[in-house]
Design a protein around this nucleic acid. Sequence first.
DNA 1: CGTTACCTACCTTCTAGTAGGGTGATATAA
DNA 2: TTATATCACCCTACTAGAAGGTAGGTAACG
Lengths: 192, 192
Amino acid sequence: MSTHQKLIDSARHLIQTRGYNGFSYADVAEEVQVRKASIHHHFPAKSDLARAVVEQSRAVIVEQTRTLGGGAFDPVEQLRMYTGYWEKCIADASAPFCVAGMLASELPTLPTDLAQEVRAHFRDLSNWLEIVMTRGAQLGRFELQGSARQEAEAFMAMVYGAMLAARAYGDPTVFSDIVASGLKRLAPAGAS
Amino acid sequence: MSTHQKLIDSARHLIQTRGYNGFSYADVAEEVQVRKASIHHHFPAKSDLARAVVEQSRAVIVEQTRTLGGGAFDPVEQLRMYTGYWEKCIADASAPFCVAGMLASELPTLPTDLAQEVRAHFRDLSNWLEIVMTRGAQLGRFELQGSARQEAEAFMAMVYGAMLAARAYGDPTVFSDIVASGLKRLAPAGAS
DNA sequence: CGTTACCTACCTTCTAGTAGGGTGATATAA
DNA sequence: TTATATCACCCTACTAGAAGGTAGGTAACG
């Protein structure tokens, strides 16, 4: 793997565990085994590095949203895959927090270009969720309380809140339990 | 007000907006108009100051829980008061985030004594919520999906997730909307 | 020969924290 | 009622280390 990508991966891991204000170029340099100045060669400023991390995350979501265009997908299964992904990440501690969620909490301290990227990530994610919610309601799989948009925001909030709770308790099962109850509430007859 | 209390209040505000790793004694010194060394006189280490902040927050919750002992309270009203408090704080930007929530996201980077205090705050809060949930179920005001404990954790996660979403979008109404839908789901016939 | 990647060496600014001194109030002892 | 000791409080001045970032050089490669 290229040094460029190694730097991004290292930064992602550090942001997930320590936040933007909690890691330094020295940390990345040690993880990737290069000198600090080499990181500046690839990413002149710290915000450039963090922005690259968020951009890659966004690309994944946008790609996911694109594949939903056809309309032939199971909404319940989509949500389960999404939450299941994080369940696994949190359980094995490989990625104990969504990078955008972490950065969102630090938003007032972030450089403006990075802050914009983080906001865009949230828009992307809730767009994707809105499509899934709409489809789920059409198919009669979801019992929506409000609009699809509102349900999307509420679901997103629950997932991020569950991450925070799991971190606070130091217990991955907290995340699983909260998310399971949220899914159950959304899709009472939730057979996949 | 005593300098001691002014320092705590300033630190609370700074943690809420910038996080533990995002503020320094220099920031507090400027807000309170004293010298850095004077802060060290009251709080030798940064974690001592942050710990005092969380301790005061915990005291409020514990007091709230104590008054619930009698059993003569309206569960729906209790939850509305809780969420309404944050709604107001977020709307007027006076306290745009719960201090413990902010610290929880940074938990892996915190000094151990402070981390313990943050975990204790979450226990206190979910204990209070569990009592409210139990009482609400007994009175037939809440439709619980799982145990009172699980519902308490889920509700807490929703509130913190809603704070994060509101910050990400820079829009206080996001918090209100998410929390309103959560309350509605919990208490469908939610007349106070 | 220019570009890419990486390096050593350095700079400035900020960080938490320390050492030690001055002041004013309060308690104590003559 | 003084003289004195103690204390809380706040200050100036300083430290060592870490922060993000720069300057300028070397080596490989097309």
